[in-house]
Design a protein around this nucleic acid. Structure first.
Lengths: 251, 251
DNA sequence: CGCTGTCTTGAGAGTCCTCAACCGTGGTGG
DNA sequence: CCACCACGGTTGAGGACTCTCAAGACAGCG
């Protein structure tokens, strides 16, 4: 944890999160934009007040961490907007980003009672915090919620296996192509994707260096497969070709 | 899926599994050696007959696959003895082993209704097969089972994140050291570990080539950190030093 | 005893990393 | 207003770690 600063922005470590407010009225959860995509949709409208009473809303400014690797796992989190990075560190500061979490993602599943990863906001992140005891009670009362969580965990496992394949067996070019297509799913438009994270984040996610990421993107640009579309935006010009590259076809 | 044969033993693809028998008597599950470590321990003795009636025992010979990537996910599996490898393939045959599953491991959690990985027996594997509908009914009737599964999935996620760190950021030497220590946990003796898998499997698990694995083991042997202990066995002579290496300390 | 498959070891090549310089943008303060 | 700095990103040259290709050693088995 020494010179992690050389690898990331690292404003983190001391959490710079505002205390947060208990969710005000009954309608809070029903108006939540992330509800459709999140585990909360396992709880029906009539019971939403139970849910709303169990959560604390929080706002995490960019660059601030809200889960610290190894800390006691006291809470679960549900992201309602923004993007966070989840990561693990080696003692010498090498970092692996294990995933980017956006609206609807549920965080905090841990073995034992300590988090096994860190989490830091990339842009401003809004999230709901559940204490463990409250969450347990919710699961007791709403079995559908528990089933939904199992479903979510299964999804994450599949994603993790894909990422292992990427990290263990794909070339830099294939990794970047895979990443771009993956980002497409989080995109609003058909071919324009938003990259709120820095090159350093992308590199730490793909198991590469920022130079290799930059060079690879430049190459794809030169080949007419992608184009700039403003700051932190990219346009995919040939997603089919990128998909071929991502799977290792031809080069 | 073309020349995967160049990367692994690959007797697989066509499943060579014997049909299997319904678990005979009530006592089958209570005598199961894997019960202690498996999700089945969520179900109390009085209900074990319900459990036993829901499973089919199967024996999978070495080298045979019992889960095929992309196939319809009709069953869950619980390994009771032996070791299986879980893997994903790229179209050109590159393989990533995402994990080794031993007694107590629960397999088959999938997103949607298709498996996202393949599974193949390394040595002779004995397992219990649950059909999805039966499993769903069991979870309905035994909420503790469902909670246990969520716990298991959380564990797997933590393991997966560690593996991503390994694949994305560790050197060959660190990877091998990490692997050896990981194997130590599955070992019966304090310092002797069993490696039922081939070098090819280890390489595909660590994101390396068999040559690099072999060279790295030779180097550790030369340094007096490990020693041969018979076929497929290794003795760890300095686990502390290996732990340092695994985390990137000094060299 | 020869065959086959696994493992080991060596030499050379290639991909990606390291080190370094440079560019562009945004914020700050003289 | 603009110089200055900090930060993120790009590009280049050289090097290192791991891969590829190849040959040989070893063990199991018909």
């Amino acid at each position: 944890m020494s010179d992690a600063a050389t690898h990331g922005s690292l404003t983190g470590l001391r959490s710079c999160v505002r205390p947060g407010n208990r969710a005000g009225g009954v309608s809070q959860c029903s108006r939540c934009g992330a509800r459709k995509a999140s585990v909360c949709n396992a709880i029906g409208d009539p019971d939403l007040d139970r849910l709303a009473a169990s959560v604390v809303h929080m706002t995490v400014p960019p660059g601030c961490s809200f889960i610290e690797d190894g800390a006691e796992a006291t809470d679960f989190f549900n992201i309602t907007s923004g993007t966070a990075k989840l990561f693990k560190l080696l003692p010498d500061g090498r970092r692996q980003i294990t995933g980017f979490a956006t609206a609807g993602h549920f965080l905090g599943l841990a073995v034992g009672d300590h988090y096994a990863f860190g989490a830091e906001a990339i842009d401003t992140v809004h999230l709901c915090r559940f204490s463990r005891p409250r969450m347990t009670r919710l699961m007791d009362d709403f079995p559908r919620l528990e089933r939904r969580l199992l479903e979510e965990a299964s999804n994450e496992l599949v994603v993790a296996q894909n990422q292992m394949l990427l990290l263990g067996r794909k070339t830099a070019r294939e990794r970047v192509a895979t990443f771009l297509l993956e980002r497409l799913r989080n995109a609003e438009e058909d071919d324009v994707l938003v990259l709120p994270m820095t090159r350093t984040d992308i590199a730490d996610y793909l198991g590469l260096t920022i130079e290799t990421v930059s060079r690879t993107l430049s190459a794809l640009r030169k080949e007419g497969l992608i184009a700039d579309a403003g700051s932190h935006n990219l346009r995919l010009l040939d997603a089919d070709r990128l998909a071929d590259i991502a799977e290792g076809d031809r080069d």
